[in-house]
Amino acid sequence: MGLRYISLAIVLCLTATSGAVAQTKDRLDRRDKLLGFESVGLLQSATGSCTAALITRDVILTAAHCVYEQGEEFTFRAGYRDGTEIAARAAVDVVIAPGYTAARKAGDRPSAIKNDVALIRLDSPMFEVGINPYEITSQARKGSALTVASYGRGRMGALTLERGCILQKRYRGDVVGLDCDATFGSSGAPVFVHDQGRTRIFAVVAVRVNGDRADAETGAVELSKHVPALMNTLRNNRAAAPAIGGAKRIKVGQRSTSAARFTKPGG
């Protein structure tokens, strides 16, 4: 199947079927509820927010369009809930997956989506109690039950944990179709899989098709091929752009002219 998965809005049945894992949503508005998900946080700029997750002590993962479209100062608030967080750090460097910028400029939405991954280096490592980086895994099969942790429109005050999402489709370019209930602000959210007794990140939420309709689908990008290259870019001298491997470096304070996809404050 080609990369027409987004523009054609694949029709998926989102009703429960025999043998399916029941989906549940929890608002993690207490410290004890956050156990194991303290390292997911709110990524904020002056004009909006997305979701992000810690993958090393000083590197977070999010969607490329979150930073490409909001090239201002960013703050990552780990374990954010109702105006407080466990820890907060400023961003000092951003790299996005090779191919994303060219696809955006060309109006090639499918190619942009399959490269919609970004890493952000923080100004100092996070060692606060409960804050531990997540590992990346490629171990998720069609039909796997997944968990998405996100901040979204109407539920930005605290992290929402959606358990029992199903991986329903696989497309070219390491894009997968999920039946998770993503919304604006959920961009950049980690998609977790329980792998050998551990919770690891399998993909990052990139797009939502058809909103609240019955044929809605959440598109996410698998990470096992993207993250190693982007980590190498962050480890090297990123003074020049484009960075190693063609990944784009966005300096903190640089702004794009593209329309924002962040959730607006209060929206």
Rank of each mutant, 00 (worst) to 15 (best):
V176K: 14
E72W: 03
T257H: 10
C50G: 00
D93E: 11
E128S: 15
H65A: 02
S144M: 02
S258A: 15
A97Q: 07
T56A: 05
G197H: 06
L122D: 03
A118F: 06
A78M: 11
R81N: 10
C13I: 08
Q70G: 04
G246S: 04
R77C: 13
C50N: 07
L159E: 14
V92F: 01
T137V: 08
R163T: 03
E128A: 15
E162C: 06
L146H: 04
G253T: 08
A22H: 02
L3F: 05
G267W: 14
A20Q: 11
A46I: 11
A90H: 14
G253Q: 01
A9F: 08
A216V: 05
P228G: 03
D181A: 03
A97M: 02
L122Q: 13
T84W: 08
R198H: 14
F127P: 11
D123A: 00
L167E: 10
K248R: 07
Y151A: 04
A189C: 06
V92K: 13
V117T: 08
Y80V: 11
T147M: 07
D123P: 00
R57I: 06
K142I: 15
T17A: 15
A22K: 00
R153W: 04
C66M: 08
C66S: 05
P242S: 02
I201C: 13
A206F: 11
L223G: 09
N237Y: 12
L8I: 04
L161K: 11
F262G: 05
P190R: 01
F192V: 12
V209A: 14
V175N: 08
D26T: 14
M1G: 14
G253I: 00
H65W: 04
K225M: 13
D108C: 01
R249K: 12
H194V: 09
A106H: 01
L35M: 01
R121L: 03
K114H: 09
G99E: 00
V207C: 03
K105G: 07
I10Y: 03
F262C: 13
I96K: 11
A97G: 00
G211L: 15
A216Q: 09
